[in-house]
């Protein structure tokens, strides 16, 4: 068994695609219309085009708002992405106007930071020890 796909709920798929590609630097993998206005929309890392896909899933279900608002209030991220250097990535993203709820902190062996993806979620970036 492998982890092939994981997902985050997004308020607006078009806006999410812009953020996840233009700001974060992922590339679009699949974009298929589903139903009237939704899309099966996934992105992957350019470093791993055949790697795990991230599904940008419409946040239309009524349970999503409560779920996400409660987690965001407490600063809890819904996904974690690996970066080579959290501090450098923090500075790059902040320069692009990204809002961080947690600046880079050394948490024992791991350095982490948390930012808002502008689509309703908090995302953690982490640098693992080599």
């Amino acid at each position: 068994m492998r982890i092939h796909l994981t997902s985050v709920f997004v308020d607006d798929q078009a806006k999410a695609l812009r953020f996840y590609t233009e700001i974060l630097g992922f590339v679009k993998k699949h974009d298929v219309p589903v139903g009237e206005k939704d899309r099966w929309l996934t992105v992957v890392s350019p470093e791993e085009p055949g790697g795990t896909e991230l599904l940008l899933e419409p946040a239309g279900h009524p349970a999503v708002k409560t779920y996400r608002d409660t987690l965001v209030e407490d600063g809890i991220p819904l996904a974690q992405f690996a970066v080579d250097d959290v501090q450098a990535e923090y500075e790059r993203l902040r320069g692009l106007g990204v809002r961080f709820t947690q600046e880079p902190v050394e948490m024992g062996p791991v350095t982490t930071a948390v930012f808002d993806d502008t689509c309703g979620n908090l995302i953690q970036i982490a640098t693992q020890p080599q």
């Binding site: 600063g75 809890i76 709820t101 947690q102 902190v105 948490m107 024992g108 948390v114």
Partner: peptide, 24 residues
Amino acid sequence: EKSGQTLFEICSRLSMKHQLGISR
């Protein structure tokens, strides 16, 4: 060390920097 932390950051610091096994 840094004022202005979310509950998540405080929990992370306690568990990962101080190895405190403590629930949210």
